[in-house]
Amino acid sequence: MIWDFEFTGRILPDLLGGLWVTVQLTVIGYLIALSLGLAVAVVRRVRVVGPIVHGVMEFIRTTPLLVQAVFVFALVPPEISAFTVGVVVLGVHYAAYTAEVYRSGIEGVAKGQWEAARALSLPVSRTWGAIVLPQAIRKVIPALGNYLIAMFKDTPLLFAITVVELLATAQRIGAAEFRYTETITLAGLLFLLVSIPSAILIRRLERRYAAV
């Protein structure tokens, strides 16, 4: 028999534990990506500093997350856990994407809005905080949602720096029991179990905000 159900039942709790780590990585990393990306998008409009930040982000965006993770993990002092490094690298990597999304939103704010803020002699903080960003962010919410799923699926890469999430758990069990068929297939199914409902949810969100 190719598929062993008894074995499947035995490994399921461990895999669910791995799934929990994956979800934690995704959610914390996403929060970093959302906030850092916004900061980058704003800083990019500053003279001199902007292009430098843009160059760094471009480098991060066009090189593999896996290699970045190993690189950073070797760079930081050993007290810092792999999980922390993983979350930060994941978050910063995706900040390079969200920054582009925010940027398109900011550029989409009508020029008259800037001019009005200027005419009312609002300080820079109010111009951004009360005029530009509320309009810009609202427009890009659906696009930002897609990155949540993308990050969720990139978490297995952190396996390279010994973060034991879903796929790493499956890989460990597979190696120990020498049965990869159930473990890896089940890991794939668990990924689908989370990513497809989230995709449906995000699509619904998209429709809601598209109407505005």
Binding site: I2, K153, D154, P156, L157, L167, Q171, G174, Y180, T181, I184, T185, A187, G188, F191, L192, S195, I196, A199
Partner: peptide
């Protein structure tokens, strides 16, 4: 689209390398 977007590329690579030969 939904199946292959939903599965991480890495899971797919493992599956191709380890499970496919088994099956």
């Amino acid at each position: 689209v939904e199946v292959f977007r939903g599965i991480a590329a890495m899971v797919l690579i493992f599956w191709m390398a380890y499970v496919l030969p088994d099956l």
